[in-house]
Design a protein around this nucleic acid. Structure first.
Length: 509
RNA sequence: GGUACCAUGGCCGAGUGGCUAGGCAGCGGUCUGCAAAACCGUGUACAGCAGUUCGACUCUGCUUGGUACCUCCA
């Protein structure tokens, strides 16, 4: 369909690169999912929708994609100090619930929100807690290769040792010396040799409610006099470090090397940096070919984040129940809003911007409906091929959805002009146009028409049609008192009446 | 403090060394009993200063302002 190939921006090289999968037609895609200890918010929607677009587009291009998006349900600490709390354990303690109750509750809330945003479920959605064994195996390998050390039952990654051979910080552009100088050291509390070391396994205090027994035996670097490697072993009741889960699960489901790893830009350091280090330390090679990072959503120019307390949950957005919101915004409005900005730009939230997105999307969807009503002519005065090319060129250019959408809007004007008889379209071009809009709008951008599915059943629809036909009669008889009364009453009941050339339209608003 | 990034018309938001992105709002028009809706048309903006260039919003330097990461965050 297109001559141009898909290029994607690789964070590693900071350049757009042509996308070539390792084992075509298969593509392995891993994206960092949520830590399920709170309601999903607008920030969660961005990576989900960004990588949903990628997922959908790769499939459109004919690739067979295995998309893995994890659920973090253990190991994500409140802070990096040794006394750091596990987020889920903490929430569980506060609410007097089993940690897995918290996990279950928020996982379902997340999935439901993603569903309403028309985000397709990933192929595999693994949980960290279900992969403790894999994570312990990984720790063992890293210990045997000499890039980790054991202190008081906890295991830490030895960044300094790793840096002698490999470049720690290459993804985020950080230099070890800077890290050394600038990392906060919480005085004396730490078992770590260096403040920038990170935990692979944390020994848990007895009151810690989420912990697993790890029995780790490994060949240490030390040797007996006869040359045999000394074996060491220890048992520790604890839990895995946050960064470990993604390394373990991506390797398990996508292999030691795979194509694309995505996530929010805020995860670049330290999370993804640590992930690279863990994979290299364990297997001697980097796992990921292309790193993709979406930018943040801002609110009044400031990052929206859980820790900043300025986030809006998706439910609040859908229902309009937040002091910053002037109205409710439908899931599709949110989706369209996010797609109207490029995924690597920050996107500023405002009521005005969301309202603009809402109206724009309605215009686009209306035109897609109009497309089905168009009458073909002998020839075309509009260039569908050019439109199509511009649209796919944009998508191929690092998923430039805002440009693709702007091209679609050019087409909207053409569609409306044909409808008004100002332009003409041939039967073949009309088919091509329909195919283009259906595949780009519905399949790739994943926009669906929400209007039709609101709770109005057939009886209601028939009744409203009946009443409006009475009004139409009244109008024909110039009985405007009656016609206005009907319109006003329907408006009061929430039915928006729109007069058209040959009759009326209505919708429940 | 260190390291990045950004600065575009009323708002959101693309992009480029010379040729109008797009959406929303506004304005003008078509339609209409009125209104609404819908549709059509319409806007030369690119933080400031200096430099490179035939030509810069786009390249370079400086200034100012802002943001992010360095601690958990999508």
């Amino acid at each position: 369909m297109t001559e141009q190939k898909l290029t994607i921006h690789n964070t590693l090289s900071r350049k757009k690169e042509e996308f070539n999968p390792i084992h075509p037609p298969h593509v392995g895609l891993y994206v960092c999912g949520p830590t399920v200890y709170g309601d999903p918010h607008l920030g969660h929607a961005r990576p989900a929708i960004t990588f949903d677009l990628l997922f959908r587009y790769l499939k459109h291009l004919g690739y067979k994609v295995r998309y893995v998006r994890n659920i973090t349900d253990v190991g994500h600490l409140e802070n990096d100090a040794d006394e750091g709390d596990d987020k889920i354990a903490k929430k569980a303690r506060l609410d007097e619930l089993e940690p897995m109750e918290i996990v279950q509750y928020y996982t379902l809330r997340y999935q439901r929100a993603m569903d309403s945003l028309n985000v397709q479920p990933p192929s595999i959605e693994p949980r960290a807690s279900g992969h403790i064994i894999e994570q312990i195996e990984l720790i063992k390998k890293i210990l045997e290769h000499g890039y980790a050390y054991v202190v008081n039952g906890s295991v830490y990654f030895d960044v300094e040792a790793y840096s002698k051979k490999y470049q720690y910080g290459k993804l985020s552009g950080r230099v070890l010396d800077d890290l050394q100088a600038n990392t906060r050291n919480l005085d004396g509390q730490s078992d770590k040799r260096n403040p920038f070391d990170f935990a692979l396994w944390k020994k848990a205090a007895p009151e810690h409610i989420m912990r697993w027994k790890a029995h780790i035996s490994y060949k240490s670097g030390e040797k007996y006099k006869n040359g045999q490697a000394k074996k060491r072993s220890f048992t520790s009741l604890g839990f895995p470090g946050w960064h470990l889960e993604c390394s373990a699960m991506s390797t398990k489901y996508l292999g030691e090397t795979f194509d694309i790893h995505g996530g929010g830009m805020d995860l670049m350091f330290p999370h993804h940096e640590c992930e690279i280090a863990q994979n290299v330390a364990a297997d001697g090679k980097e796992a990921v070919r292309y790193w993709m990072h979406n930018n943040m959503i801002t609110i009044n120019g400031q990052k929206m984040g859980k820790s900043l307390g300025n986030f809006i949950t998706l439910e609040q957005l859908f229902t309009g129940s937040h002091q910053l919101l002037q109205q409710a915004y439908s899931p599709m409005t949110i989706r369209f809003f996010i797609l109207q900005a490029h995924y690597r730009s920050t996107l500023d939230f405002s009521n005005e911007a969301l309202q603009a997105a809402e109206k724009g999307m309605q215009r686009l969807l209306k035109a897609v409906e109009t497309l089905d009503k168009l009458k073909p002519s002998d020839k075309s005065t509009i260039n569908v091929a050019e439109l199509e090319k511009a649209c796919f060129d944009a998508l191929n250019d690092d998923l430039n959805s805002p440009i693709a959408i702007s091209v679609l809007f050019d087409g909207v004007r053409a569609i409306n002009s044909v409808n008004e008889g100002k332009e003409q379209i041939s039967a073949a071009d009309l088919e091509r146009m329909k195919l283009l809009y259906h595949s780009v709008v519905f399949d790739i951008l994943g926009i669906c028409n929400e209007k039709t599915e609101s709770g109005n059943n057939q009886l209601t629809a028939d009744l409203i049609d009946f009443i409006l036909n009475l009004r139409k009669q009244a109008k024909a008889n110039k009985d405007f008192d009656t016609s206005d009364r009907i319109r006003n009453e329907l408006t009061r009941l929430g039915v928006v009446v729109k007069d058209t050339k040959d009759g009326f339209e209505w919708e429940i608003g």
